[in-house]
């Protein structure tokens, strides 16, 4: 446990001495703020229900996360492999699972910071009408779960790459594909249902509407667990090559 903490702290330090953390935090908040204010202007706050405003806000955040998650995970392993510091990590008395968890939790911490910075938007909405706390909480729970699964995919890709740009583009491609299959699948019978089930963003819609569905929670947690497990295996297997 101590090792996980040590690695987590070091990875956060790395995020904040490089421009990655600032880029991710401020550009994300900037884009969400832009989308939020334009939805208010275009929609007209007086004609829209506050629930609708929040629904749009959360959906916008879910899609924007898709672009940012790869930037948050790209460095985690790819950079260590490129510079050779992975040799240091692998020859230290640390288990592979501790390395993966330390790095993953660091990226998750950055995600939580990002989401915390968007809290002013629901608060601003509450100036224009009554805002129920329930949907706000469910929206953020959904974003954390969704983000957690995005990051788990990103970290797996990073563990297989030497180049962080390649890692970012590959995980972005995978996330985009998993989002798009949800669109394609709409209204296409059984196969469509299966594809929609696989689409990461589809499961988020209920959260944005204020419902925390157990099956969606389980879905996100199992996706995250599977990809983290695969990452541990990928880190182990690198030794055998």
């Amino acid at each position: 446990m101590r090792n996980v903490w040590t690695i987590l702290v070091k990875e956060l330090y790395t995020y904040f001495v490089s421009p990655v953390a600032y880029f991710v935090l401020f550009v994300f908040v900037g884009i969400i703020g832009f989308l939020f204010s334009s939805s208010l202007i275009i929609g007209g706050i007086n004609r829209m229900e506050t629930t609708e405003v929040l629904n749009v806000l959360f959906l916008n955040m879910s899609v924007t996360l898709l672009f940012f998650a790869p930037a948050m995970t790209m460095k985690l392993f790819a950079e260590e492999r490129r510079t050779g510091t992975i040799e240091l990590l692998m020859t230290s008395p640390v288990r592979d699972v501790e390395v993966v968890m330390g790095k993953y939790l660091a990226s998750l911490t950055l995600l939580l910071m990002m989401l915390a910075l968007t809290l002013p938007f629901p608060i601003i909405t509450s100036f224009y009408g009554k805002v129920d706390v329930g949907p706000v909480i469910s929206g953020y729970v959904g974003l954390i779960l969704l983000g957690a699964s995005f990051l788990s995919i990103g970290i797996l890709v990073s563990s297989m790459c030497r180049n962080q740009i390649v890692a970012a583009l590959t995980s972005f491609g995978i996330l985009l594909l998993l989002w798009l299959i949800g669109f394609i699948a709409r209204g296409r019978g059984t196969i469509g249902e299966v594809l929609r089930y696989l689409s990461l963003v589809e499961h988020f819609e209920d959260f944005a509407r204020g419902i925390i569905g157990l099956k969606h929670v389980i879905y996100y947690l199992s996706v995250t667990a599977v990809f983290l497990f695969a990452t541990v295996r990928s880190v182990e297997s690198a030794k055998w090559r």
Binding site: T14, T83, G84, T85, E87, L88
Partner: peptide, 12 residues
């Protein structure tokens, strides 16, 4: 262990 390419985190 000191590997051949000295593994350092240059930003630290």
């Amino acid at each position: 262990y000191l590997p051949e390419t000295v593994p350092l985190y240059l930003e630290m």
